[in-house]
Amino acid sequence: MKVEVHLHATLRLVIKEGKGQVIIVDLPENSSIGDLLELMMIDQYLDHMLIVLNGRTTGLAQVLKDGDVLNLMIAVSGG
């Protein structure tokens, strides 16, 4: 299955392809968000990451499905 991953702010730079902001990741069926982050090697930020799946905040255990849109960011506040 394919999942669309949007990376924001500092996270966009951790992807080796450079400044990629949107990437399509091919995952085995029943993969969770935790599995995806491990695969992408950005699991070191887990404690501070805001995970938004199809517009709603969710957690690592959430199982993904084909066509999901995932937004990942280190959560900050406005000013």
């Binding site: 924001h8 937004n71 959560a75 900050v76």
Partner: peptide, 9 residues
């Protein structure tokens, strides 16, 4: 950085 966060929500 909030702009994209808020948009995504």
């Amino acid at each position: 950085a909030m702009a994209r966060i808020c948009h995504s929500l």
